[in-house]
């Protein structure tokens, strides 16, 4: 871990159920500022659900989310039942946590620049000029300045994902969540997206990344977590994880399937 002070994000006993199915089952996780956490595991193991819970796109049944030392996101009503906090508070929290999706989810009716400007403009209520300035900075960071005036339909998958990263970064988030950012990409396009994420890591961005790319986990992660059936089965530094945890039956069978 790069930092030993107070965790930026602290999850305690996160549990999310879909009817009879428990997708996430009492997960605890502390993420320190600047730390890069990579979560791997078979599909349906609850990785994405956990990530989405952090951004309140899923409402959890149990557990607490502590962000920057404050428990956030859920309040109890007068009957003692917990529910999501007011939309204003949730929106404010989300604007501090960036998220990148598997399918990019760019806004197709806006230009590349428009996509990246949208957060500062609409959510942070910044002026046109300032929002444009921020957006151009972020596009430069992901190396797509020359594409600013085209619509997303004209971009390749890798370019789309880099724009999506720029869009999230334009909000100046304190934490970035990546939900399988390369799973929808052709193999030759994966590299450019990881280069972008790698550059972010070098700048000290705190990140939680769900991925199937073991090479990337090995190279970038401060910590690798193996998740299965809603729980963390094993975790450790990449060296420790790929050297010692490999004997874990479940991990072995998973890795042998995807490598």
């Amino acid at each position: 871990m790069k930092s030993a002070n107070q965790p930026l994000l602290s999850l305690k006993g996160i549990t999310k159920r879909f009817g009879a199915l428990t997708a996430v089952n009492g997960v605890d996780l502390d993420v320190c500022p600047g730390e890069i956490v990579v979560i791997i595991g078979p599909s349906g193991s609850g990785k994405s659900t956990l990530l989405r819970s952090v951004n309140f796109l899923e409402e959890i049944e149990e557990g607490t989310i502590t962000f920057e030392g404050k428990e956030v996101g859920y309040v109890k009503n007068k009957h003692g039942r917990r529910h999501l906090d007011t939309p204003q508070k949730i929106c404010a929290l989300r604007s501090e946590i960036g998220m990148v999706f598997q399918h990019f989810n760019l806004f197709p009716h806006m230009t590349v620049l428009g996509n990246v400007m949208e957060g500062p403009l609409t959510v942070q209520k910044k002026g046109q000029e300032e929002a444009r300035h921020i957006a151009l900075d972020m596009l430069a960071k992901v190396g797509l300045s020359e594409k600013r005036d085209v619509y997303p339909a004209t971009l390749s998958g890798g370019q789309k994902q880099r724009v999506a990263i720029a869009r999230a970064l334009a909000m100046r988030p304190k934490l970035m969540l990546f939900d399988e950012p390369t799973s929808a990409l052709d193999p030759e396009l994966i590299g450019e997206v990881f280069d972008t994420i790698r550059a972010l890591g070098k700048e000290g961005m705190t990140m939680i990344i769900v991925t199937h790319q073991m090479g990337f986990a090995k190279e970038m992660a401060d910590r690798v977590i193996f998740m299965e059936a809603g729980s963390f089965v094993a975790q450790g530094t990449p060296e420790d994880f790929f050297a010692n945890q490999m004997e874990h039956d479940r991990i072995q069978s998973f890795l042998s399937r995807i490598l």
Binding site: N55, C91, M99, G119, A170
Partner: peptide, 27 residues
């Protein structure tokens, strides 16, 4: 309109109304 559009709008901190007005309805 694909569900991901609403999620992406929410993920950058938009309210439901903002997401509808700026992202969903124009599409």
């Amino acid at each position: 309109i694909e569900h991901g559009q609403m999620e992406a709008a929410k993920a950058i901190g938009m309210s439901y109304g903002q997401a509808m007005r700026r992202v969903i309805i124009p599409q």
